[in-house]
């Protein structure tokens, strides 16, 4: 089974995040990490290969130079190869352009299954998996809380607040997974050392046959007008109990619709 796993390098929320003059994330200035939701995609792909006693996993990312760290982190958890789509013209791409580029990159690989995280933890558009399935012309099984592959059939379970749905499709198809799919592994020392030797390829828009006019800030279907860092959490309300603490607590809870 040949699996392509999509990964994204996103700002580490513990660090400094800044916005550039054009309202894009200032990626050069930030500490980045492999998106946590993508770790679940990596984990599911690794489990599928383990369960089936074999298979190949290629990680794919689109991003500036630093994005290669997401590939390295994924490879240190397991898997076989990394592909990085790197091109200055991609700066400011929206989800539509992102899905175009990733689809073209996937088409250059041999694959049976694409696994993604349900959304990125920075933009959280959560539409790229569905857009990709559309562009690739394959079934898209999104928001999987459980994933299994048996022969040619992929089955997922999607859990919502009111129902659990079991959905299946044939390979080739695309799946996006949630954080309910199970704990992700930490990289092992052996995995970290082995990751160094795994093949990494870089490609640009020209390699994918994509016209730069179709991507980037200029091609975006929407424009970011303003972006500001969310203010730090306030200290909270402190109530001194002068015999009326219970009443004040009840008022606070009911104002917040907790009771």
């Amino acid at each position: 089974m040949r699996i392509v796993v999509l990964v994204k390098h996103v700002p580490d929320v513990a660090g400094d995040i800044g916005f550039a003059a054009d309202n894009t994330t200032n990626r050069a200035a930030m500490d980045g990490r492999l998106s946590e939701l993508d770790e679940y995609a990596v984990e599911q792909a690794l489990r599928l290969v383990e369960q089936h006693g074999g298979g190949e996993i290629t990680y794919l990312t689109m991003g500036p130079e630093g994005a290669v760290e997401a590939l390295r982190k994924a490879l240190s958890m397991g898997g076989d190869a990394g592909v990085h789509v790197l091109d200055d013209a991609l700066h400011g791409s929206d989800a539509i352009a992102t899905s175009l580029v990733l689809a073209e990159a996937i088409k250059k690989l041999d694959w049976d299954l694409v696994v993604c995280g349900m959304a990125s933890t920075d933009a959280t558009m959560s539409v790229v998996p569905a857009m990709l399935a559309e562009r690739l012309g394959v079934p898209g099984l999104t928001l999987a809380g459980r994933l299994a592959v048996d022969g040619n059939t992929v089955t997922i379970r999607r859990d919502s607040d009111y129902a659990s749905m079991t959905i299946s499709a044939s390979l080739p198809c695309l799946v996006s997974v949630t954080d309910q799919t199970g704990e992700t592994r930490y990289p092992s020392f052996k995995g970290i050392m082995a990751a160094k030797k795994k093949p990494m390829t870089t490609c640009c828009l020209a390699d994918l046959g994509i016209d730069p006019a179709q991507v980037g800030a200029g091609a975006a279907w929407s424009v970011v007008d303003a972006a500001t860092r969310r203010p730090p959490r306030a200290a909270g309300v402190v109530v001194t109990d002068e015999g009326d603490g219970g009443v004040k607590l009840a008022e606070f809870l009911s104002a917040g619709k907790f009771i």
Binding site: K73, S76, Y186, S188, F189, I192, M193, K196
Partner: peptide, 8 residues
């Protein structure tokens, strides 16, 4: 690689 191990 050792710093990656430290992170993990």
């Amino acid at each position: 690689e050792h710093e990656q191990l430290r992170q993990a």
